[in-house]
Every structure is written in structure tokens, then in C-alpha cells.
Lab assay of single mutants.
Amino acid sequence: MNLTVNGKPSTVDGAESLNVTELLSALKVAQAEYVTVELNGEVLEREAFDATTVKDGDAVEFLY
């Protein structure tokens, strides 16, 4: 899956889609429990991480 992460191209191997929690784990995001996630310009509530799917071509920003 090809994404733009914090403005840079990134690839997650072996996945066509992941939820936000899985993406944080796959990318080994440090202190993931404290990060705010913006997906395609929309800031996500932490409670929505498990239910929100990240797909090929999406833009993700991790805000600390």
C-alpha cells in the first residue's frame, strides 16, 4: 500500500488496507498513544482509529 505520510511517500508492504491502529503499529510510530492522526485532511478522534480504514493513495499526518 502506497501512502503519503507526513508529506513523504511511504509504503506498507503486504497490505491493501489497514485501520489507523494497525497502521500506527506497522509504521512503528513512537508513542502512538499520544499521536493525533489526520487522514486526508480530517483530524480523527482516537475512538475512531479502529473503525477508520486507511487505503492505498491516502495522505496521513501524525501530529505530536
Rank of each mutant, 00 (worst) to 15 (best):
M1K: 04
M1W: 02
M1H: 04
N2M: 12
N2Y: 10
N2K: 13
N2F: 11
L3V: 08
L3E: 01
L3T: 03
L3K: 01
L3Q: 03
L3I: 15
T4D: 04
V5P: 02
V5G: 02
V5W: 03
V5S: 03
V5T: 02
V5K: 02
N6H: 03
N6I: 01
N6G: 06
N6F: 01
N6Y: 00
G7F: 04
G7V: 02
G7K: 05
G7E: 03
K8R: 11
K8G: 05
K8A: 08
P9N: 08
P9Y: 07
S10C: 15
S10W: 15
S10P: 02
T11N: 08
T11S: 09
T11V: 13
V12M: 06
D13Y: 15
D13T: 14
D13C: 15
D13V: 15
D13N: 13
D13R: 14
G14I: 08
G14N: 09
A15T: 10
A15I: 12
A15Y: 15
A15W: 13
E16C: 12
E16S: 14
E16R: 12
E16Y: 13
E16A: 12
S17K: 09
S17V: 11
S17T: 12
L18A: 03
L18F: 07
L18Y: 07
N19E: 01
N19W: 04
N19K: 06
N19L: 07
V20F: 06
V20S: 01
T21Y: 08
T21W: 13
E22I: 05
E22T: 07
L23S: 00
L23N: 00
L23A: 01
L23R: 00
L23T: 01
L23W: 01
L24R: 00
L24W: 00
L24F: 04
S25N: 12
S25G: 08
S25W: 10
S25D: 11
A26W: 14
L27S: 00
L27M: 07
L27Y: 05
L27F: 06
L27C: 08
L27T: 02
K28V: 06
K28M: 09
K28N: 12
K28L: 07
V29Y: 05
V29N: 03
V29I: 13
V29L: 07
V29G: 05
A30T: 11
A30D: 12
A30R: 11
Q31D: 14
Q31P: 08
Q31W: 15
Q31E: 11
Q31V: 08
Q31H: 15
Q31L: 14
A32E: 08
A32Y: 10
A32D: 09
A32V: 12
E33R: 09
E33K: 09
E33P: 08
E33H: 10
E33T: 07
E33I: 07
Y34N: 09
Y34A: 08
Y34S: 10
Y34R: 10
V35Y: 07
V35T: 05
V35K: 02
V35R: 02
T36C: 13
T36V: 12
T36H: 08
T36M: 10
V37A: 02
V37C: 04
E38P: 00
E38A: 15
E38N: 13
L39S: 01
L39I: 08
L39A: 01
N40A: 01
N40F: 02
N40V: 01
N40L: 01
N40P: 00
N40D: 01
N40K: 01
G41N: 04
G41D: 03
G41V: 02
G41A: 03
G41T: 02
E42P: 01
E42G: 05
E42H: 13
V43Q: 08
V43Y: 07
V43M: 10
V43W: 07
V43D: 03
V43G: 05
V43N: 05
V43C: 10
L44V: 15
L44D: 00
L44P: 00
L44R: 02
L44I: 15
E45S: 13
E45W: 07
E45H: 12
E45K: 12
R46H: 07
E47S: 13
E47Y: 09
E47H: 11
A48L: 12
A48W: 10
F49T: 00
F49A: 03
F49S: 03
D50E: 11
D50G: 09
D50C: 07
A51G: 11
A51L: 13
A51R: 14
A51F: 14
A51V: 14
T52R: 06
T52V: 10
T52N: 04
T52Q: 06
T53K: 10
T53S: 08
T53C: 14
T53L: 14
T53P: 08
T53W: 14
T53F: 15
T53G: 06
V54Y: 00
V54T: 01
V54Q: 00
K55L: 06
K55C: 07
D56H: 07
D56W: 06
D56Y: 05
D56N: 11
D56M: 06
G57H: 05
G57L: 03
G57C: 05
D58M: 04
D58G: 01
D58R: 00
A59D: 09
A59L: 10
A59W: 13
A59K: 14
A59T: 14
A59Q: 13
V60E: 02
V60G: 02
V60P: 04
V60L: 12
E61L: 10
E61V: 13
E61Q: 09
F62N: 02
F62H: 03
L63W: 15
L63K: 13
L63F: 15
Y64K: 08
Y64Q: 09
Y64I: 11
Y64R: 07
Y64G: 09
